[in-house]
Structure formats: structure tokens, C-alpha cells
């Protein structure tokens, strides 16, 4: 290994539980999925304590290369990118179908 070994991050930063207010499975499950894809993440899980409680408890444990907050931030950015991409392609498709319908009429 030519790379210098860095001191591991303190546990207090690599394993954290977040409480996300006013959210549900919509965001919880997509973020959990994206975090699971991250090889630096050891464990990720979420739970909604009670159906009438509008709070998602989010547990992230990383392997030590990145902080849990950084992992969550990356997942958020990925989700944002996915949504932005889908929005763009959807807009293009709507344009295509609408102009196609217009061509048919003329």
C-alpha cells in the first residue's frame, strides 16, 4: 500500500441515528436504497416508530472512510440527480408525444 493510512474517524461520526421530521417511506425507502448501494456504508436502516408519528428514524453506520452525515448527504445528492434527470426526460417525452399528436391531426 503506497497510500498513507489515515486514522479512522471517531465512532461518534460514523454511526449515527437521524430523526427526519414530517417524512415517511417515500423519502425513507429511497434514501435507504441509495445508502445501501454505497460501499462505504456498513449498515443502514430506517423505521417509523408508529404510523401516526410523522418521523423517520434513520440509522447509518459507515466503514470508517466517510462520516455518516457525508453518506447521507451523498444519498440526498444522488436522489436529487435522479429526480432532476427523470423530470428532464419526462418533459422531453411529453413534448415528443404532444408534437406527435399534433402531427397526426394536421
Amino acid at each position: 500500500m503506497t497510500q498513507e493510512r489515515k486514522a479512522p474517524l471517531p465512532k461518534s461520526e460514523t454511526s449515527l441515528t437521524y430523526a427526519i421530521e414530517d417524512e415517511d417511506h417515500t423519502l425513507g425507502n429511497s434514501l435507504r436504497f441509495l445508502l445501501n448501494k454505497n460501499p462505504h456504508v456498513d449498515f443502514v436502516g430506517y423505521s417509523i416508530g408508529h404510523p401516526s408519528e410523522h418521523r423517520v428514524q434513520f440509522r447509518i453506520q459507515t466503514t470508517g472512510e466517510i462520516t455518516a452525515t457525508e453518506a447521507l448527504r451523498q444519498a440526498c445528492r444522488d436522489l436529487k440527480q435522479i429526480c432532476a434527470h427523470m423530470k428532464q426526460t419526462m418533459a422531453e417525452e411529453v413534448e415528443r408525444v404532444k408534437s406527435g399528436a399534433a402531427d397526426m391531426q394536421s
Binding site: I20, L27, C76, K80
Partner: peptide
């Protein structure tokens, strides 16, 4: 509905990044 739905998801992630 589809575009507004995606906007809602975008806002959600944006808000979460900010509060992080």
C-alpha cells in the same frame, strides 16, 4: 402530476440537504 411529483421529491431532498 408527474412533473409536480418529481418537484416534490426534489424539494424534499433539497430541504434535507439544507437541514443536514
Amino acid at each position: 402530476i408527474v412533473v409536480m411529483g418529481l418537484d416534490v421529491l426534489l424539494n424534499k431532498t433539497h430541504d434535507l440537504i439544507e437541514s443536514l
